[in-house]
Amino acid sequence: MAEIIEDVQMDTQEIEQETPPSDVFMAPSIYKADIQAGKSYSHFSPIPQQVAEDMSTEVVLGVDEAGRGPVLGPMVYALFYLPIELHHSLLADTHHFDDSKVLTPQVRSNLMRKLCTKGSDLYQAGGWATRLLSAQDISAHMLSPAVYNLNAQAMDATIDLIKGVLAQGVNVTEIYIDTIGRPEIYQKKLERIWPTIRITVAKKADSLYPCVSAASVCAKVTRDAALDVCYEPYHNHDAGVDESAGGAEVKVAWGSGYPSDTRTSTWLKQNMDPLFGWGNECRFSWSTAKELLEGKKADVAIDWPVEDDSNDMRMTDFFAGRNESGGDELVDWFGKRVTEEMEVF
């Protein structure tokens, strides 16, 4: 049974906090080609100097995410680590990290820029990593016959990021993780994987532990920048003319990407292809998109490709050999449009 994602109802101020600023910092974790192609990927910063000089240094690591609920754009998991003795003094006392939702977009961008600026105290002491889960991959996994739900995808993203840091030889002795689900179940699973590391999984960890706050900023700024990159192909398409402004051209943005944002819901309705829906920036598994496509607004009935019970053939088998593409059928299917380069027989 597919996991149901309920839209989080937000007030105007919360929606603005979730909306990417026009001058969002493009961190090294932004791979434009992969984002626009609907691919998921991971990014790891270099090991910070203060850790690299002595790899036995005990390190604290925090994990948080951004973009779990939106219908548009990726979900991003991030971690941040630094020497334990600097945990509170550098992050909380000096730079005032906090849950990204209570920081202004400008403050978040400025903090992320400092993390990425060589020579800064944050760059020398702290390392970070992100795992970007594209909207296309999230939907493909949630709608596949063997459902891979969002919680499982999130857990695997967290584990993969931590494993990536440990594989570099970083001496992580404490881990703090923010969670939406039941913390005790999450924590026990991680403790079985890393029994020698002290692990704390807690709700609102992003406001309790500075390393999680820093991870929250890394995740949110990466998510904001990625959403901006996703929108680039629509810049000219969504340009309009505002007669009240003397005919000046006005861009119609999709806002925060959350269904409760009227800019987002309006954009989805105005830009829906009756057959293909939207591009790979949209989570087709969200009820907001499914309802628009499957009858309420669409004029064309949609049948997603599934295996035929009577044999082992799929629709896509007529276009490519079973073993030729090496990809995921549903991942490759979403958001494809017929172009001039594609011949239809």
Score class of each variant (00 low, 15 high):
residue 59 V to T: 12
residue 110 N to V: 03
residue 209 Y to I: 12
residue 222 T to S: 07
residue 192 R to W: 02
residue 14 E to T: 11
residue 337 R to I: 13
residue 3 E to H: 11
residue 198 R to F: 10
residue 328 D to P: 00
residue 18 E to M: 10
residue 262 T to N: 15
residue 289 A to W: 15
residue 198 R to E: 00
residue 79 L to K: 03
residue 10 M to W: 05
residue 289 A to P: 02
residue 16 E to G: 09
residue 133 L to Q: 10
residue 11 D to E: 15
residue 196 T to A: 08
residue 135 A to W: 14
residue 212 V to D: 00
residue 146 A to D: 13
residue 85 E to R: 14
residue 200 T to W: 03
residue 71 V to M: 15
residue 217 V to T: 07
residue 194 W to I: 12
residue 329 E to Y: 04
residue 221 V to L: 11
residue 252 V to G: 01
residue 6 E to S: 13
residue 119 G to T: 11
residue 36 Q to N: 06
residue 285 S to A: 14
residue 274 P to R: 01
residue 304 W to H: 04
residue 162 I to N: 11
residue 256 S to P: 04
residue 339 T to D: 09
residue 341 E to G: 07
residue 265 S to F: 02
residue 202 A to H: 12
residue 149 N to V: 03
residue 325 S to K: 14
residue 340 E to C: 06
residue 27 A to K: 00
residue 317 D to Y: 03
residue 160 D to K: 14
residue 268 L to A: 06
residue 246 G to P: 01
residue 215 A to L: 10
residue 135 A to R: 05
residue 293 L to R: 15
residue 37 A to Q: 15
residue 187 Q to T: 12
residue 96 H to S: 14
residue 120 S to P: 02
residue 25 F to K: 02
residue 38 G to R: 08
residue 232 E to M: 01
residue 91 L to K: 10
residue 175 I to E: 00
residue 146 A to E: 15
residue 339 T to E: 07
residue 336 K to F: 06
residue 236 N to I: 10
residue 7 D to G: 09
residue 335 G to L: 02
residue 64 D to T: 02
residue 85 E to A: 06
residue 102 V to D: 13
residue 209 Y to E: 09
residue 126 G to V: 10
residue 42 S to H: 09
residue 333 W to D: 11
residue 265 S to Q: 03
